[in-house]
Amino acid sequence: MVEGRIPEERRRRKPTKSGVLLSEDVIVDCALRLVGQHGPDALSVRRLGAALGCDPSALYRYFHNTDDLLLAVADRIIGETTRGFEPDTMAWRDGLRELALRIHRGYREHPRVAALAAYRVTRRVHEFRAVDAGIGLLRRAGFSDEDAVRHYSAFVDTVLGHAALDAAHLALPVERRAADDRAWEGVYAGLSAETHPQLAAVRGHLPLMAGSSFEAALDLLLSALAAAAPTRDG
């Protein structure tokens, strides 16, 4: 049995009071919706039970606790974003880039979940497949097994770190997000050359700081991997 999974015999087989037939997918759907609407505090068995029309204790037939559910939610996002991803049909560098863009996009689409789960290890089927694909692409680049694992760790941490950072920015209230973005062309660009000569020298480019640096960081990382790869057809 995969770690974290509840045995089949413990699962509910009759509808809830609201007519919903409980399943792992139904509970994960509800958790995604509630966290997206109300934030991390919505991930409680009480609120989930109320939303699903069932006794909160019924959820324990499917998940050990809310952390177990959170990992299932994170794995759902990985599954949604990697659906249709076929790394064997593309060059290894292109495959890594597409995988990175998919994962980053998935967490940006669920920013409140990203703040909770982007740094977690789900130990579930969709993450297994994503990690297997990523390491496979790096082995195809000619890296040794040890280096493939080491480089994949750096790759995925870069992707998930940026996903969490960008998602946290998106989760801010609109007015706070706008104020942070304006700071680069306002407060920073207005600093004196006498006190901050380097910032003053590049003041015309400071608005670039307002956008996500994810793709720039990804390109730098992929270029470094390509330069180090034993195989040159990436």
Rank of each mutant, 00 (worst) to 15 (best):
144 S>F: 05
178 A>N: 03
85 F>E: 00
166 D>N: 00
181 D>S: 14
175 E>F: 13
208 L>Y: 08
176 R>P: 03
133 A>T: 01
96 L>V: 12
127 E>T: 09
190 G>K: 13
193 A>N: 04
193 A>I: 07
183 A>Y: 08
151 H>W: 12
204 G>D: 15
137 L>I: 12
205 H>G: 15
212 S>A: 07
196 H>A: 06
209 M>T: 06
172 L>C: 08
149 V>Y: 10
151 H>L: 07
136 G>P: 02
184 W>V: 04
207 P>R: 08
97 R>D: 10
115 A>Y: 08
86 E>R: 12
185 E>W: 13
93 R>G: 05
191 L>F: 12
116 L>R: 06
196 H>M: 09
102 R>Y: 03
132 D>G: 06
170 L>F: 10
184 W>Q: 11
133 A>H: 11
137 L>G: 03
90 M>S: 10
161 G>Y: 06
115 A>N: 04
204 G>E: 15
95 G>E: 05
86 E>H: 12
187 V>N: 06
110 H>P: 05
214 F>G: 01
144 S>T: 13
142 G>W: 03
77 I>D: 02
110 H>G: 02
146 E>D: 11
111 P>W: 00
83 R>A: 13
116 L>Q: 10
80 E>C: 02
103 I>H: 03
108 R>M: 02
85 F>R: 00
137 L>P: 02
123 R>V: 11
157 D>Y: 04
136 G>L: 00
118 A>R: 04
165 L>K: 05
118 A>Q: 01
109 E>L: 11
188 Y>L: 13
149 V>N: 06
164 A>N: 05
195 T>E: 07
